[in-house]
C-alpha cells in the first residue's frame, strides 16, 4: 500500500462499532459484536461497515448500492435512530462512546443488518403509486401543471423508499398491518397531483382501520427521513383530505 498517497494532514482514529449480528442458520436471536475500526473524519458509518467487511469479517451482511443517499438501500438503526449509513458522518456521532448499529425494526430480520422489505413494498403498491389519468394530453404535449399546483406535493416527490420512516414508527412495530408513513407519503404524492384522477380511490384505501387513522403523531418518521420530508405533515394532509372526501 502506498502510504505516501494519504495526505499526512488527515488524521485517522479508531472507533468502536457494536453491530447487531444475526445468522439465521445458527442463531436463535441476534447478538452484539464489537469491532475496532480505524476511520478518517470524512468517513461515514457505511465506510466503517465496509472496512469491517473487507478487512475483518467478510460475513458481515448489509445492503448498500449507491453509497450516496439516492437508492435507499442502507437504512439502519444507528445509535437508536433510523439513518442511512451512507449519509451519517462518523464525526457527527459521539465517538467517545461505542456506536451501535442494528437493523431497522418491525420488518422480518433476514441476516445481520438486512430485513425482508417485502411487507414494506406491498403496502407501497397498495396505494397505487402511479399516475392514473382519465384524459389524454394534447397530441405531442405533456400534461400541464402550474407551479403552484406542483408545489403542493413537491415534498413527497423526494421519497427514496428507504423505509427509515415506517420502521421508526411505534405503531408499525406493534401492528405490521399498518400501511406506514412511507406508503402514505407516496399516496400523498399522487393524491395532490392535479394531473391525477384517482385521488378518491386512494383516499378510500387509506380510510381503513390500518390506514391513516393508525397514525398517533409521534413524529419519529419526520425525524428519521433522510430526505427531510415532513412526513407527519403529509399524513396530516391526507387525514384532512379523507375527512373532506377530496384532495
Amino acid at each position: 500500500m502506498a502510504k505516501t498517497a494519504t495526505p499526512s494532514a488527515v488524521q485517522a482514529f479508531t472507533i468502536q462499532l457494536i453491530v447487531s449480528r444475526f445468522n439465521p442458520e445458527t442463531d436463535e436471536e441476534s447478538r452484539w459484536e464489537s469491532f475496532d475500526v480505524e476511520v478518517f473524519s470524512t468517513d461515514r458509518v457505511l465506510d466503517a461497515l465496509h472496512k469491517i467487511k473487507w478487512e475483518q469479517d467478510g460475513s458481515l451482511t448489509f445492503r448498500r448500492s449507491c453509497a450516496h443517499g439516492v437508492c435507499g438501500s442502507d437504512a439502519m438503526r444507528i445509535n437508536g435512530r433510523n439513518r442511512l449509513a451512507c449519509k451519517t458522518l462518523i464525526k457527527d456521532l459521539d465517538i467517545t462512546k461505542p456506536i451501535y448499529v442494528e437493523a431497522i425494526k418491525g420488518l422480518p430480520l433476514e441476516k445481520d443488518l438486512i430485513v425482508d422489505m417485502e411487507p414494506f413494498f406491498a403496502a407501497y403498491r397498495e396505494v397505487k403509486p402511479f399516475l392514473i389519468a382519465n384524459s389524454k394530453p394534447e397530441k405531442g404535449k405533456e400534461r400541464l401543471q402550474s407551479i403552484e399546483n406542483r408545489e403542493i406535493f413537491d415534498d413527497t416527490t423526494k421519497c427514496i423508499l428507504c423505509a427509515a420512516c415506517t420502521t421508526s414508527c411505534p405503531v408499525f412495530w406493534t401492528d405490521g398491518q399498518y400501511f406506514g408513513p412511507a406508503a402514505i407519503v407516496n399516496a400523498h404524492r399522487f393524491i395532490f397531483d392535479s394531473r391525477d384522477d384517482s385521488a378518491k380511490e386512494r383516499l378510500e384505501i387509506l380510510n381503513d382501520k390500518e390506514g391513516v387513522w393508525r397514525c398517533r403523531t409521534t413524529f419519529n418518521c419526520s425525524e428519521a427521513c433522510p430526505r427531510g420530508i415532513q412526513v407527519t405533515q403529509a399524513i396530516s394532509e391526507v387525514k384532512a383530505a379523507v375527512l373532506r372526501g377530496r384532495p
Binding site: I18, S20, S30, W32, E33, N79, Y100, F219, E223
Partner: peptide
C-alpha cells in the same frame, strides 16, 4: 472482534435491541 454485552442503559427495550431514541413527539 469480540462478542460483548452492551451496557444495560443501551438495551432497555426489546431483547437484543436498543431503545429507539425518539424525541418530544
Amino acid at each position: 472482534s469480540k462478542v460483548i454485552t452492551p451496557p444495560v442503559s443501551q438495551m432497555k427495550a426489546s431483547r437484543g435491541g436498543t431503545l429507539y431514541r425518539g424525541r418530544e413527539g
